[in-house]
Write a protein that binds this DNA or RNA. Structure first.
Length: 596
RNA sequence: GGUCCCGUAGCUCAGCUGGAUAGAGCAACAGCCUUCUAAGCUGUGGGCCAUUGGUUCGAAUCCAAUCGGGAUCACCA
């Protein structure tokens, strides 16, 4: 039952009758009663006191007295200033719980039941360096949002557009050629993406050195950046690549394959996956015809120097080049082409989501605006899932300067911390080695994923490498622990929970009632989280649920409860708590252990 | 300079479609394991919600200005 709707349907006629108003149930806004007051839902009566021509207290009393007579589910009320606190009956909550308990997928709509198909792009790494903490946020966010959208019955297609070509890729290639001495992942024992990343840094070092030499010879900084021999060689390499030079292509393929092998390992550790992977080397020429189309429609115009532009100044944006004067593509050219191509390839998709950092907010504004001007009505269905940067105490991470938190190091470090803490606790004595390894990974990744996903994606977040990610308090392992505790009780119970029935005459303990009320909210939480593309809502909800369980656990015994019907009910209650914890953590890509 | 985002406890974050005395966690301090897993529970201290105005019965929340931080405005991606 939708409780708010039920209550406002009761309330609306009462208010109309009492005060001569003409409200509809939709106008009646209820909120959950704050913990420190008695009640389940609260109506704020301030808006009615003018019509009621009396005090807020009296207004609440008048409404409350009528309300309580209207339906037996409404048990009692109290008034504090302008707040009418309404309590629903014990039986009402019990019967709500019965339907929650019965539904193994409570809150989760059947897959593909909405009829909506959504393509979600995320990850989209460059193949010149390993993944760092910023990419980790992108990957976890994209994966989580996709999972959450699935709970709403949407068909979600996860895609990865790999940035595998361009001048930055050539930088690693040229540095390897110059300084690598044939080093390979096999010969060096270095993970492929890290090896390529090493040469990306090498390039930057050599480049800077050359610039300094040139500047010492009296050349300006800008000129030096252009004249640096290694930069010239890199540009030549890019031209060769575009001309399909066999030797260059072979080098490019070899180094990229190293990177893919490396990424594969990292993706597996992160637990993310894709339905399809695109490569920019296949798509970078897309979009040129679109430019011609826009030109003939008069949406774009050619400047004197031959470049093609669009004027967006009337839309609060600037003039934007969509094709260079030499006829080559810019970044937005291929994004236009890729978008149009995707809607051709998947004519049934209703929405396209791009998981990309907020430093590209402007780019996506321009992209969607241009698509709209070109007459593609689905442009309105394109959404930039923009997330804040991960910053270190000293500021932004920079790959070239090596001031990044490496993804693999971070993951391995978390798993190690989990191992240390677990071993210290002495709780894994009867685990075999495989089970131990799996548990350490589950806990370590749970801590890392939760740490990242609990913060609002839109906001930038701070990570201090000196302070390791916590395993206590508002953390992933806290939630995992609550789950493991429940599973431990259910194991000790050692009977099927299937046949247990929930009695109608149980007087609910405060914590039991809170747990039911909280579980009742789960579908709305998923919906809200999906609508706002915000996994943090699910994360924080799950933490609150786990905390509530811990409080319950502390105050109420399950297995040692003498009253059989209360005991059965509690078994059902914790079972459904565990299920919701598991399902919501799954939305975040976090596993929950059976024991820890 | 234009545009956009952000300033909440010492630190990391919730709360922001306006509502009651602004919440968690970490860190600090004090309690709770012969009782279903103490990665837990309970309590204490800690706040001019950046500042100033405005709208409102009511503002951390909405509006404006100011100060502070960041991003972006490439024929880079």
């Amino acid at each position: 039952m939708n409780i708010e709707l039920f209550l406002s349907t009761q309330l609306s006629p009462i208010i109309n009758e009492l005060f001569g108003l003409s409200s509809t149930p939709n106008d009646i806004i209820l909120q959950k009663t704050k913990k420190e007051f008695e009640g389940d839902y609260t109506l704020v009566t301030f808006p009615f006191i003018k019509a009621a021509k009396t005090t807020p207290e009296k207004t609440g009393e008048l409404i409350g007295e009528k309300l309580i007579l209207s339906n037996s589910l409404i048990e009692k009320f109290n008034v504090v200033k302008g707040f009418l606190n309404i309590s629903l009956s014990n039986n009402f909550w019990l019967s709500e719980f019965k339907s929650i308990s019965k539904d193994a997928n409570y809150g989760i709509k059947p897959y593909k039941s909405s009829g909506k198909q959504i393509m979600l792009e995320y990850s989209s790494p460059n193949t010149n360096k390993p993944l760092h903490l910023g990419h980790v946020r992108n990957n976890l966010l994209g994966f989580a949002v996709a999972s959450i959208l699935k709970t709403q019955g949407h068909d979600v297609i996860k895609v990865n557009l790999v940035n595998d070509r361009g001048i930055h890729i050539c930088k690693s290639m040229i540095a390897w050629k110059l300084f690598g001495n044939g080093e390979t992942p096999l010969s060096s024992g270095i993970k492929g993406d890290h090896l390529v990343g090493k040469y990306y840094v090498e390039f930057d070092k050599a480049f800077k050195k050359e610039i300094q030499t040139l500047i010492a010879n009296g050349i300006s900084k800008e000129e030096a950046e252009r004249q640096a021999p290694i930069m010239i060689k890199t540009q030549e390499m890019l031209l060769k690549w575009e001309a399909n030079d066999p030797e260059t292509i072979a080098l490019w393929k070899m180094m990229n394959s190293w990177v893919y092998d490396g990424f594969q390992v990292s993706y597996k550790k992160l637990g993310v996956d894709f339905d399809s992977i695109y490569y920019e080397s296949n798509t970078y020429l897309l979009g040129k015809e679109i430019v011609q189309e826009g030109l003939s429609k008069g949406i774009f115009y050619k400047k004197d120097n031959g470049s093609i532009c669009i004027d967006l100044t009337n839309d609060g944006l600037d003039e934007k080049v969509v094709l260079r004067s030499d006829g080559t593509s810019v970044y937005i050219t291929q994004d236009l082409g890729t978008a149009i191509e995707r809607f051709k390839e998947f004519p049934t998709i209703n929405q396209m989501i791009y998981t990309v950092g907020n430093e590209q907010d402007y780019h996506f504004k321009v992209l969607f605006k241009i698509l709209s001007k070109l007459g593609y009505d689905w442009a309105d269905e394109c959404y930039h899932l923009s997330y804040g940067m991960v910053e270190l105490p000293e500021g932004k991470m920079k790959s070239r300067e090596g001031t990044v938190v490496d993804a693999d190091d971070l993951i391995d470090g978390m798993v190690f911390t989990a191992k240390e803490t677990t071993e210290e606790s002495g709780k894994v004595a009867n685990f075999n080695d495989d089970e131990k390894e799996e548990l350490y990974h589950t806990i370590g990744m749970g801590a890392l994923k939760y740490f990242i996903l609990k913060v609002d994606p839109k906001k930038k977040m701070l990570f201090d490498p000196k302070e390791s990610i916590d395993l206590h308090g508002n953390t992933g392992p806290f939630i995992q622990y609550a789950h493991a505790r429940i599973k431990s009780i259910l194991r000790d119970f050692n009977k099927s929970t299937e046949s247990l029935t929930i009695s109608d005459d149980i007087l609910l303990h405060d914590k039991e009632k809170e747990l039911i009320k909280f579980q009742y909210d789960f579908p709305k939480i998923l919906e809200e989280s999906a609508n706002s593309f915000n996994p943090a809502i699910v994360a924080n909800y799950t933490y609150e649920l786990a905390k509530l369980f811990n409080q319950f656990y502390n105050e109420c015994s399950v297995l040692k409860e003498d009253n059989q019907s209360i005991k059965d009910f509690r078994i059902k209650l914790i079972e459904s708590t565990a299920r919701i914890i598991k399902n919501s953590m799954e939305c975040l890509g976090i596993k929950v252990p059976e024991r820890m």
